[in-house]
Nucleic acid binder design. Sequence first.
DNA 1: TAACACGTGTTGAATATTTAACGGCCGTTG
DNA 2: CAACGGCCGTTAAATATTCAACACGTGTTA
Lengths: 193, 193
Amino acid sequence: MENVVKTDRRILRTKQAITKSFLELFSEKDFEQITINEIAERANVNRGTIYLHYSDKYDLLDKCIEDHINELISLCTKQENPSVSQGMVQEPKPIFDYFRDNFPFFSAMFSNQRVFLFREQLLNFISVNLMVKMKKPDDQPDIDLELKAQFMASAFIGIVEWWIRHQMPHSTQFMADQVKSLFENNQVYLANK
Amino acid sequence: MENVVKTDRRILRTKQAITKSFLELFSEKDFEQITINEIAERANVNRGTIYLHYSDKYDLLDKCIEDHINELISLCTKQENPSVSQGMVQEPKPIFDYFRDNFPFFSAMFSNQRVFLFREQLLNFISVNLMVKMKKPDDQPDIDLELKAQFMASAFIGIVEWWIRHQMPHSTQFMADQVKSLFENNQVYLANK
DNA sequence: TAACACGTGTTGAATATTTAACGGCCGTTG
DNA sequence: CAACGGCCGTTAAATATTCAACACGTGTTA
């Protein structure tokens, strides 16, 4: 599960430079207009080096999305406090913090029409994450769990998207509190209530 | 005179990372407290790599200063407009722009007691630069040129230091205009008057 | 049509950097 | 005192990246 062998520093540095350069360009111009040459030059990396890690710019975009999704996943799983057995979803503030700290990326993602993949993966991740911990069929046995998870996940992403697109007009704490309230209205109770 | 052979990208990138890391640390703590380990770790570079380019942290500091002095020199010489024969000193705004764009570095330099070298080199550069173009012994033949150059250079650096230490309270354009006025008061006339 | 400029992927040889290890020095702690 | 931890400066071998050169496709222009 863990990477036992630490990856070479050069690889990490290079990938960082490439994705940083790429995401900058991504927020500046249309995806199709971006060339490998540009990315390489701005990253101060040889053009060929990019091909050592990514097959093309589509793959590069995919990997960027994947990385952030994985970051979100580890953020959520790592947060598992000892009271896991209660089946509660975790505190949303760290999630919002992550969105805020990576604002350029998510802003680019939400403002770019082409990126179905991102929305889809994010939605899937959220809904799965919600559903796993939401097993409370006591009160309303007639509501499908998966359906409800999708419903709540969509709502959550909708709020996030609105928040990002409006340049984060509220603090992450405020957003987290709002989300918690909205979730509680729908019988989804969060940890550290 | 020019570097005919372009240096390897890796060298440029590594040096950049090292100096950036070092200058950050330099602005955070006392020079003597800084360790090679820290620099390497923050630069995301192997410790040994630093020794490939610099013999120790003193050498590293020297090279940083040297680089900036050279940048200033090329900035001044490159600016030689066709009306060079008039013996005028160039417009000071680009110089102030350069100071502003490298604020972290100069701020660290000016706020650190230890760095005699920097002040000395900068002063020497300015005074030589002034003196070469200041040959106007018509009005006041009783004033030594070198002395006057030193005088004006010190005054100039004094203003720059004040400006940097006070977090650049005025625009570069404003500073340039002020300096031009002060110079004219002392019979030092600048280009593009 | 042909010539040209530009972006793409790919290759082999050169080279900069990493890793892991070594011995040494110094300050602290038992 | 000895043991220890931290930083130093250096090394050999492994490896990631660079550079320069390919062939290819695509549009532009004369």
